[in-house]
Design a protein around this nucleic acid. Sequence first.
DNA 1: ACACTAAACTAACACTTGTTAGTTTGTTGC
DNA 2: GCAACAAACTAACAAGTGTTAGTTTAGTGT
Lengths: 189, 189
Amino acid sequence: MKTETRKEEIIKTAATLFKEKGYSAVTMRDLATAMGMKAASLYNHISSKQEILKEIIISLAEEFTEGIEVIYNSNSNSLDKLSQIIALHVKITTNNTSGMASLNNDWMHLEDQLAYYLKLRNNYEAIFLSIIKEGISASEIKNLNPETIMFSMLSTLRSLFLWIPKKEALNANDLANNLSAILIQGINK
Amino acid sequence: MKTETRKEEIIKTAATLFKEKGYSAVTMRDLATAMGMKAASLYNHISSKQEILKEIIISLAEEFTEGIEVIYNSNSNSLDKLSQIIALHVKITTNNTSGMASLNNDWMHLEDQLAYYLKLRNNYEAIFLSIIKEGISASEIKNLNPETIMFSMLSTLRSLFLWIPKKEALNANDLANNLSAILIQGINK
DNA sequence: ACACTAAACTAACACTTGTTAGTTTGTTGC
DNA sequence: GCAACAAACTAACAAGTGTTAGTTTAGTGT
C-alpha cells in the first residue's frame, strides 16, 4: 500500500496508449512493450485490463463531481460559476490529458463500473444545467435553450484533451480566461 | 455496379455498431449477426473490415472539404461564412450521425487512407482558420486568438453526432440558428 | 430445362487475445 | 549466509480474430 508507484506507472502508460488508439485496440502486449516487460509481468501489479480502465476513468469522474459541487454551492453569480467550471476542466485536463481521452472515448467499455460512471455523469450534467437555468432566471444569461448552451460549452470542454497538448505555450490560466471570453461573450465584435 | 444496396446496408449497419463500441471493439461476427448472416458471407460484398471504415470516413471527409470550399469562395462576409459552416455541420451530421462518430473517433484506424484523411482535415482547418482571420482583419470578429476560436467552434460542431440523436424534436434549421446565436453572439445578456 | 448469377452457407486457417501457473532473479533486513 | 519479498520471467491455455476456399441455394433471363 506504500510503494504503489509501479502500478501507477502502468496506468499512466496505459492511458497514453489508450489515447492514441483507444482501449480496445491496445493489447496487454503493447502495454508490456511500452513498459519494457512481458505481458504476464503486468499481472504482478494489476488484476486485469478492465481494472486499468476503471482506475483511469472513475477517479477523474469523481474529481469532476466534487469540483462542480463545490462550485454549485458557492455564492458566486451564475456567470462566475460557469467561468469556474471552465477553469475546472482546464485544470483537470492539463494534469491528465491522456486520462481525459479515455474518459471521453472509452467509458462504454467499463463493465462493472459503467452504471456508476453514468450516474456520476448524469449528476454532473444536471448540476451544470441548474446553474445555466438559474442564470437565465436571474437575467444574467440570454434566454436561449439551456440544454443547447450546456451542450455547446461541454463539447468544447470535453475536447480540451485534444487541444491542450498542442498548445503548451498557453498556460492554464490564460487558456481558461480566453475560453471564458469566447464561450460567454461570443466572438461578434 | 447497379444494385450496390447490399454493400451499403452493411456499411450503414457497421457505422451504427462502430458508433456504440468503436471500430476495434466490433467484430465481423458482430456485424454479421446484426445483418442476419454469417461473418464469411459479408465478404461477398466487401473486401475487408478496413474497407468499411474507409467508405464511412473518406466520403464524409470529402463532403466537408467540398462544402467549406464553396463557402470560402462565396462573397458573404466572415460571420455569414461561419454561420454557413455551422449549417454545413448540422446538415451532414443529421444525415449520417453514425458515420460522424466513426469520423471523429476511429480515423486513426484508417491505414492506407490515413495520410489522405489527414490531408483533407488539415486543409479543412486551414480554410476555417482563414475565414476567422479575415473576419478579425475586417473587424467583424473580436481580436481573440483565432486558433482558440476555431477550436471552440469545431469542438461543438464535431460533437453534434452525440447531441442530434437525442433532440430530433429540433429540426436542422432551428438547431443551426440556435448554435449560430450561441457560438457567435455568446450567452452573456 | 438450362446456364448464370447474387448471396448465402460450412469448415477451416493462422494468428492474436487476455490471463494463469509456476519459476527465476535481485535486493533488503537480520 | 539466509529468509523474505517484489517483480521480472517462460510456457501455455482457451477463446476469439479477420479472412479464405469451396459449396449450396434460390431466383432470373433465354
